[in-house]
């Protein structure tokens, strides 16, 4: 409605080229000025920086981004580097486990919280508080708990169970599970809150109808409620997924990539090559691969959200 109000004013005698310029720049001017930070952010950062990163990932930039065009060299080198390959494998394994466990546990806890339990808000407060903490804090606490010499392992052994072993943090084969325990600790509560909001969004009368139809509670959750929560599920997957791709702080704090390179992740690879390794081209190529991953995750979501709108009610 703002448009029509201003259009009437400018209709007075302006035509042709000037009219076009006026329409583009003067029309609704305060709003455009106010939105300048957003426009700049979108054009310079989200579009400009992305294109810049992609472009320079095809150069041989070392300490400064001035190198010449070398085609896919950086990418070939990237996938020839064991550290990168380990990072990617780790991200896939960790990501799959984290996604599945976060969703399943989040949904399970949300269902339990939905059973008209006592102390619901106390339970929710306890499950969600880790989400308020920094990944650094989370990583350091679990690093201490899993400390093989003085942490949980020693404590249990001192209590008499001498065969007890919990050295995941120092064990290359188990370190991803250590990461998983800490990651779930921080993220499950959030997923639970999302799912609970989804469950509570289901019309009360659906539940009544299911009870009159004699459908058992578990069956109602699985066959009726869960499919109705498609929107929340998709949102949860996208949020958890983009968090997994970004995984960085937690690794830095909990394992710093170790032992050896057994818990390296792509985000850390990028950072190390850009700011410590002095190999900008490599870092940028790795960053572009991360971008590609996100795009691959995002396209089906964007399609479902915006492309398939006609199918939704």
């Amino acid at each position: 409605m703002a448009d029509t109000a201003v259009q009437r004013v400018e209709g007075a005698g302006i035509s042709g080229q000037r009219g076009f310029l006026r329409k583009t720049f003067v029309h609704n001017l305060p709003a455009k000025i106010a939105a300048l930070p957003m426009i700049a952010t979108v054009l310079i950062v989200f579009v400009g920086c992305t294109l810049w990163t992609i472009y320079y990932s095809f150069t041989n930039s070392k300490l400064l981004p001035t190198g010449k065009f070398v085609g896919f060299d950086q990418y070939e080198r990237l996938f020839g580097t064991s550290r990168w390959n380990v990072s990617v494998t780790n991200l896939i394994s960790y990501g799959a486990m984290s996604l599945v466990f976060t969703l399943v546990l989040g949904f399970l806890l949300a269902v339990l919280m939905d059973q008209k339990i006592r102390f619901e808000s106390a339970f929710r407060t306890i499950m969600l508080y880790p989400f308020a903490l920094s990944f650094i804090v989370t990583g350091l606490v679990w690093q201490w708990i899993m400390n093989p010499t003085l942490g949980l392992q020693t404590t249990i052994r001192n209590l008499g169970w001498t065969g007890f072993s919990f050295d995941w943090i120092a064990n290359p084969r188990m370190v991803l599970f250590a990461l998983l325990i800490a990651g779930l600790w921080q993220g499950v509560g959030f997923c639970m809150v999302l799912m609970l909001a989804g469950l509570r969004g289901v019309d009360d009368e659906i539940w009544k109808a299911a009870r009159v139809d004699g459908i058992p509670t578990w069956r109602t959750y699985v066959s009726i409620v869960l499919p109705m929560m498609r929107g929340v599920l998709v949102t949860a997957v996208v949020l958890i997924g983009s968090g997994i791709v970004r995984l960085y702080d937690l690794v830095v704090a909990l394992t710093n990539g170790g032992p050896g390179i057994s818990s390296e992740v792509p985000a850390k690879y990028v950072y190390n090559y850009m700011f410590s390794g002095g190999n900008i081209g490599q870092g940028l190529a790795a960053a572009s691969m991360m971008l590609l991953t996100v795009v691959i995750i995002m396209i089906p979501w964007a399609y479902l959200e915006f492309g398939g709108k006609g199918r939704q009610s």
């Binding site: 009159v212 009726i224 499919p227």
Partner: peptide, 14 residues
């Protein structure tokens, strides 16, 4: 031995 019809219809959408 009852059947019930609701205001919001409460049909299972999927």
């Amino acid at each position: 031995g009852i059947g019930m019809v609701f205001q919001s219809y409460a049909l299972y959408p999927q």
